[in-house]
């Protein structure tokens, strides 16, 4: 083979062309990296902080505690109706049996009316007169604690307007206070279940009470039923709050995940 000038020219031209192509590739890489950085920065800027929901839990807890305390103090705890030899008696009693006349028969219903029939127990429906003075006190304390919790949470929300805590901290505090409220309402229900249990015992042990001459007994606990409804609603409400908060976090988490995925997809990285 002969080496000519033309070949030499072609070789040099091809070399230059290759070098140009390589240089272009390098430049493209650089620009690509720059674009990547710019995109990442833009994504960071784009990250919208999710709007904090107007957290009403504090107000709701305060309202529930007020309603609870008012019902404990103002509504009657027991409504009793029974027939004796002398006639029918209808009476409603408030907490501590402070209002209304306490007849012997009513005390017999709650505490050892049947002297002849049993040595195993003094009462037949699982309730004593002391229960009507102790339980309201405990429930009032529980509702006071709930109110304080609600007040603290509303204070936190007010402080949040100035301090502007992060989305996560506010929602976490929201859910912790919801958990605390849930435990308090479970405690209230736990105290009041003995009143519900008395219905079971009244059904089973009615013959023992009737042996002492009291017949057609009807017992209703208006305050306890209202309080149980109130505490059940608070339990449902708090669990709903917990779930809502969890979903908010989940949404945020999934959004971040999709953002990262999109970024990887755009720039050809494997996740």
């Amino acid at each position: 083979m002969q080496y000519t000038e033309k070949d030499n020219d072609n070789d040099s031209f091809s070399k230059i062309k290759e070098s140009i192509v390589k240089a272009k590739d390098d430049l493209l890489d650089e620009t690509f990296k720059k674009a990547e950085i710019k995109k990442a920065l833009r994504l960071k800027e784009e990250k919208k902080v999710p709007k904090k929901p107007f957290l009403k839990l504090g107000f709701v807890l305060i309202i529930i505690s007020i309603i609870g305390i008012v019902t404990v103090n103002s509504l009657p705890w027991v409504f009793i109706k029974y027939d004796t030899i002398s006639g029918t008696t209808e009476e409603s009693y408030y907490k501590d049996f402070s209002q209304g006349t306490v007849y012997d028969e009513t005390t017999y219903i709650f505490e050892s009316p049947c002297k002849n029939c049993s040595n195993y127990s003094k009462n037949f429906i699982g309730l004593t007169l002391n229960d009507f003075s102790d339980t309201p006190k405990l429930i009032i304390y529980a509702f006071i604690i709930m109110g304080i919790l609600g007040f603290i949470f509303t204070l936190f929300i007010i402080i949040d307007k100035w301090r502007n805590f992060s989305f996560e901290t506010t929602l976490l505090i929201h859910s912790t206070s919801a958990v605390a409220a849930n435990i308090i309402s479970v405690f209230v229900i736990f105290i009041l279940t003995k009143f519900l249990g008395s219905y079971f015992l009244l059904y089973y042990n009615i013959s023992f009470i009737e042996a002492s001459g009291i017949k057609n007994i009807v017992i209703v606990y208006p305050t306890t039923s209202i309080l149980i409804i109130l505490s059940v609603t608070t339990i449902i409400f708090t669990i709903a709050i917990l779930q809502i908060n969890f979903r908010e976090f989940e949404k945020k988490f999934l959004l971040e995940k999709t953002r990262v995925g999109r970024r990887y997809f755009r720039f050809g990285r494997s996740s």
């Binding site: 249990g197 079971f200 015992l201 089973y204 042990n205 023992f208």
Partner: peptide, 8 residues
């Protein structure tokens, strides 16, 4: 039969 719950 006399029934007893937790309180009783």
């Amino acid at each position: 039969e006399l029934h007893f719950n937790f309180e009783m």
